[in-house]
């Protein structure tokens, strides 16, 4: 575990050096948040919107903004670069560490810093705009929320890493990675809550992994899930984590068989 701890420490230091990039990313998220909140508030709607009051919808987006810095991982392109540029050999294959684990801790270094920036930005937004996220939690529901965020985060890491190792075959993975982001954007509830979808479509969406990355934690936060749905939601998150991990390992092992690196 000590070697992963060293990787984590090193990546936290790197994250602190490139803090400007994290600020830019939060700023980008803030612009999207501004658009969505302004759009909903300009509707002047007083009733329920897809089962949400305007206040709980605002909470959905405000907490969603924070979630962006917690559940999303950006390792796909780094893995792709290491495979296509040949540095995979030096970075992983000759070291006594798991590539999956090393990447996880590399990303975790950034992940420890990014939510702090997210909280700070959110506090500024709340202070300036006067908007307040609803906060009517029990201890159990708050722990459930955090647990679902953790599971969603691991699930998204598995998805990103699996797409990254596709570079053993395809060289470029930007396009296919974009498909995953599209999935999270619409079918994961990043653009609008999933309760806006027709019921028959919703049944299909509930089977896909995207909901369990982003929407499910927010549904817990906004108290849209019953106790039964909470248990089945956690179970589905764990099943998807296991399934994507198996897919990653299969791709990794098959990819290594055909991998060749050049250079000294």
């Amino acid at each position: 575990m000590g070697k992963y701890w060293q990787i984590l420490k090193m990546r936290v230091q790197i994250a602190l050096i490139y803090r400007g990039n994290i600020v830019l990313m939060r700023l980008s998220g803030l612009l999207l948040l501004t658009t969505l909140l302004s759009m909903w508030m300009s509707t002047n709607h007083t009733g329920q919107l897809g089962g949400y009051s305007l206040n709980s919808l605002i909470s959905y987006y405000l907490v969603g903004f924070l979630l962006n810095s917690m559940v999303f991982w950006f390792c796909t392109m780094r893995i792709k670069t290491e495979i296509t540029e040949g540095s995979l050999g030096v970075n992983a294959l000759i070291k006594p560490i798991s590539y999956y684990g090393a990447n996880f801790f590399k990303e975790l270094g950034w992940h420890l810093f990014s939510p702090l920036m997210g909280v700070l930005t959110l506090l500024i937004v709340v202070g300036v705009s006067g908007l307040r996220p609803e906060f009517n939690f029990t201890v159990l529901s708050f722990v459930s929320f955090l647990f679902s965020v953790g599971l969603g985060s691991v699930l998204f890491y598995n998805l990103s890493a699996s797409l990254g190792v596709l570079a053993f075959w395809t060289t470029q993975v930007g396009g296919i990675s974009s498909v995953m982001w599209m999935g999270v954007f619409l079918l994961g509830g990043q653009s609008i809550p999933l309760s806006f979808f027709p019921d028959n479509l919703r049944k299909v969406i509930d089977l896909l992994p995207f909901r369990y990355v982003y929407s499910f934690p927010l549904e817990i936060y906004t108290q849209k899930v019953t106790n039964d749905e909470l248990v089945s939601g956690f179970a589905t998150q764990i099943v998807w984590i296991a399934a994507t991990y198996i897919v990653y390992q299969l791709l990794w092992k098959q990819g290594l068989k055909k991998y060749s690196a050049f250079g000294g």
């Binding site: 990313m25 501004t34 658009t35 302004s38 508030m41």
Partner: peptide, 23 residues
């Protein structure tokens, strides 16, 4: 080093993809 600026540019244009009167 301006890494990450791509997302920022994208987000700026997203602001304009709804009627500007929402602001």
């Amino acid at each position: 080093n301006m890494e990450g600026i791509e997302d920022f540019f994208d987000s700026v244009i997203t602001l304009g993809r709804y009627p500007t009167y929402i602001y």
